[in-house]
């Protein structure tokens, strides 16, 4: 029973991180129809910026996260301006190739500057706490709480602010949004900023329990893709729910099936889903 509870708790932590990453990915997809393969690199850079702010500038953890949000958000915005915007009329294959180019660049750059070592990120939440017969670190509790807070803030932003409403409107109809006077360029940049910020937060809260290294984004991004396919490409609630489902399935799978293959669960899930439903689980129906 304790094992199960412990694993459920771990699943919730991992799921929180997945959800945040998938949210950024799904927002960008919803608005620009770009599967941003470079999103995992944003996640990785997010981890490094927080870590290095703490290590080099000696700032506290939360200030490090704030710096990371600004840096990665801006980086994502630059990506939109310099790369995806010029490619908006190009064949869809070009977006993907460009995203791969960015991913390769960022990863190598980080490796060049900070090396390929695995690094641990210190956290003020390293102490453990016991309850209900399980022992967890405060960091894990922080992850769960932080993720929920961020999701609520995001919802408020999308529902209650003008720019947020514009993002939602544009994800439903780009041309239409343009007609009613929404500045599509600004919305696109903002969406990328938010997506980068989410990746930075996710990486910063996950790094103390994982590690920081140049390849840390690979698996996360692949899984985030699986999540948004399960949850519906462009769907915000789908990304959140999908993230938790995957996190829980994985930690249960690791315990009860095989730890070595737990990373496979997501991909097997994806292969099964796309095999049965080639357009994804919640394909948008339309007369087009």
């Amino acid at each position: 029973m304790d094992v199960l509870l412990q694993q459920l708790f771990n699943g919730l932590t991992v799921g929180s991180v997945y959800s945040l990453v998938a949210l950024g990915l799904t927002l960008v997809y919803g608005i620009l129809h770009i599967p941003n393969f470079a999103h995992g690199a944003l996640y990785m850079v997010g981890g490094y910026i927080t870590l290095m702010s703490m290590a080099l500038m000696g700032v506290p953890y939360f200030i490090g996260i704030a710096i990371s949000i600004v840096v990665v958000g801006t980086l994502a915005m630059l990506m939109e301006r310099l790369v995806f915007n010029p490619l908006r009329h190009a064949p869809p294959i070009h977006d993907k190739i460009a995203a791969i180019g960015i991913l390769l660049f960022l990863e190598t750059l980080v490796q060049l500057v900070w090396g390929a070592d695995y690094r641990a990120m210190p956290t003020p939440f390293a102490d453990t706490i016991s309850f209900l017969g399980i022992t967890v670190t405060w960091q894990r509790i922080m992850i769960i709480v932080a993720a929920v807070v961020v999701m609520i803030l995001l919802q408020l932003f999308l529902k209650k602010t003008m720019v947020g409403a514009a993002i939602v409107a544009m994800s439903q109809n780009r041309e239409g949004a343009f007609l009613v006077g929404i500045n599509a360029n600004k919305v696109a940049m903002l969406t990328f900023f938010v997506s980068g910020a989410l990746a930075a937060i996710a990486a910063s809260i996950a790094s103390p329990i994982n590690l920081v290294y140049p390849g840390m984004g690979h698996l996360v991004i692949l899984k985030a893709f699986v999540i948004i396919i399960i949850g519906g490409m462009g769907s915000v609630p789908g990304a959140i729910i999908g993230g938790y489902i995957l996190g829980l399935t994985e930690s249960l799978g690791a315990t009860f099936i095989s730890a070595a293959y737990s990373d496979l669960i997501a991909f097997v899930l994806l292969v099964v889903i796309l095999t049965m439903k080639p357009q994804g689980l919640f394909a948008q129906k339309g007369a087009h």
Partner: peptide
């Protein structure tokens, strides 16, 4: 046979995942 039932972005993501599955199997 399976992958090509998906199109464009889905195909790219699908094959990316198939590639990763192959890697994981070889690795593990």
């Amino acid at each position: 046979l399976i992958a090509l039932r998906t199109k464009e972005h889905f195909f790219a993501i699908y094959t990316l995942c198939v590639g990763y599955i192959i890697y994981l199997i070889i690795y593990e």
